[in-house]
Amino acid sequence: MKLYGKYIEILFKSQMQYRTSFWLLAFGQFLIPFSVFAGLYFMFERFGQIKGWEFSEVALCFSIIHMSYALSECFARGFDSFSALVGNGDFDRFLVRPRSTVLQVLGSKFEFSRVGKLVQSIIVLGWAVSQQLADWTMLKGLVLLFMIVSGVFIFTGIFILAATMCFWTVQGLEIANIFTDGGREMAQYPLNIYQKWVTRFFTFIIPFGCVNYLPLLYLLDKTTGNPLPYMLAPIAGILFIVPCLLVWHVGVRHYRSTGS
């Protein structure tokens, strides 16, 4: 972790060399999800609710997913841009260093300008929480934090899987965006508004439902029966990283060096 902290320090200093550019980019990152949230507002203004979900409830779901995505983009960006390391042969240097390739790729790039998205998500989260009639307790606050962490692990896992494909394709595949950008857009709504096969896929294969739906029911006092499974559902999102790392190590073993 000391080495990881050093990576963060070095890349933060390098990005702050052009502060005006950094803050303009961060402001742009703030506006992008804000425009999406505005579209969400106008949709509910027109239809009132979606399958029993009120605007403030969906806004809570929206903020959790976008916060998770912003944090993952910031700290796992190295995997998202991994194809450049393979294409240029720079990954060869990672293999001869006495540190994990996962740690080195994580530390190869950080996007601190994503703080704009993060701030926007925090604002929406604060407003959405204030609008809920459910009683908020410390336990619910911990579950909320747990949901955000779980979402970060899911998006990071998807970035890792997308990066692993580069060992065979060299260039990154756009199909991965279906599960990153597409997953974010899908998961900003409670999962039960979709068809059953979508709900099942994004619960048992890519466990977004364990972040944006099951624990959300607990936060809003909509659970039936024992609330413990709803509270512990985000564990599935954290465990999602395990098979992703296993696939990554398989990909590393099949990597063909450039020989340069």
Rank of each mutant, 00 (worst) to 15 (best):
I8L: 14
P243T: 04
Q171V: 03
C244Q: 07
G225D: 09
Q188K: 11
A128C: 06
F82Q: 07
N212F: 03
M43L: 14
V96P: 01
I32Y: 13
I241M: 11
L31D: 00
T180A: 01
L85I: 06
G225C: 06
V36I: 11
M165P: 05
A187E: 03
L216D: 10
Q120R: 04
L161F: 05
M147K: 08
Y18T: 02
L3S: 12
T223D: 00
I175M: 09
E54Y: 04
L85P: 00
S121E: 04
L219T: 01
I64Q: 05
Q131P: 02
P33I: 01
A187G: 09
D90M: 14
F94C: 11
L139Y: 08
T223G: 05
N192K: 14
V152R: 07
E185R: 11
G28I: 07
P207A: 10
V102T: 04
G78A: 03
G107V: 01
Y213P: 05
V105W: 00
G89M: 09
F55L: 12
F42C: 02
W197V: 06
S100K: 06
L239D: 03
G107I: 00
G89T: 07
I160M: 10
F75Q: 11
M67R: 06
R97Q: 14
G78H: 02
G259C: 13
I175V: 13
F34L: 12
M43Q: 11
M186C: 01
V198R: 08
S72A: 12
M165Q: 12
M16Y: 09
V170W: 03
S108Q: 09
V119I: 14
G183W: 00
R114E: 15
V149N: 10
L106Q: 06
F82L: 12
N192P: 00
T199W: 15
A233K: 08
W248Q: 05
K117N: 13
A233D: 03
L31V: 08
L103T: 02
N212S: 13
M16L: 12
Y4G: 08
L228D: 01
K2P: 05
L3M: 14
I32S: 11
V119M: 04
R99Q: 15
V250R: 13
L133V: 08
M1I: 11
I238A: 00
R253H: 13
G151W: 13
S56Q: 12
V102N: 08
C61L: 08
T20V: 06
N177S: 15
A236M: 09
L85V: 04
L142W: 06
L228Y: 10
E9R: 15
E73M: 13
S100P: 07
E9H: 14
Q15P: 02
A233H: 04
D135N: 11
N177G: 02
G209R: 13
F12I: 02
V242F: 06
A128N: 01
L24F: 15
F146D: 07
T20M: 05
Q17C: 01
D90S: 15
F240N: 07
E45M: 09
